[in-house]
Amino acid sequence: MTDRIFAAVLLAVTIGYAVIAFTVISAPFQYDPLGPESWPQILSIVAVLCLLYILWRPDDVTMDLTRSVWFRLGAAVALLLAYGRLYEPLGFVIATILFGTIMALMLSAPRWGAVAFGVAAGVLGWLLCVTVMDLNLPEGAVVEALLETFNKEGN
């Protein structure tokens, strides 16, 4: 059943892909026998055939996950999205400390171990990547503002 649902969703996407290939894409003028639309057309036909086969004869796979596992996966994805969203505003160090600590706690790490891990990942990660390897990581709008006021007060 799971296989069928997934195939049906993919089939809808593929049909959308095919419609665009057959109607929208076209070159204003061309000399070659195959235009930009031909290859997507071929691919969409192959994909539709494969998906119809799966719909006709699905494998016997099930998502045998308990509710708590689903919850943990959902929480992990939410955390990852939040981490990505806060990456630039908070900056690498703070975002990583928060993400590392909360994620480790969620995966049932001991409380102080999780905090230590988060801080180590954020601070050591910054030192290693930015100071030693000279990679480009976000400092963070908040941190930047703080540093600026700090510098002004210093003057």
Partner: peptide, 23 residues
């Protein structure tokens, strides 16, 4: 595993952000 898993995310984010620089 509870340290390894977040570490993978941190490494992946560093890698992608460094190259593409787009959140």
């Amino acid at each position: 595993q509870h340290y390894l898993t977040p570490l993978i995310a941190v490494l992946a984010f560093i890698g992608i952000y460094t190259i593409v620089g787009n959140p």
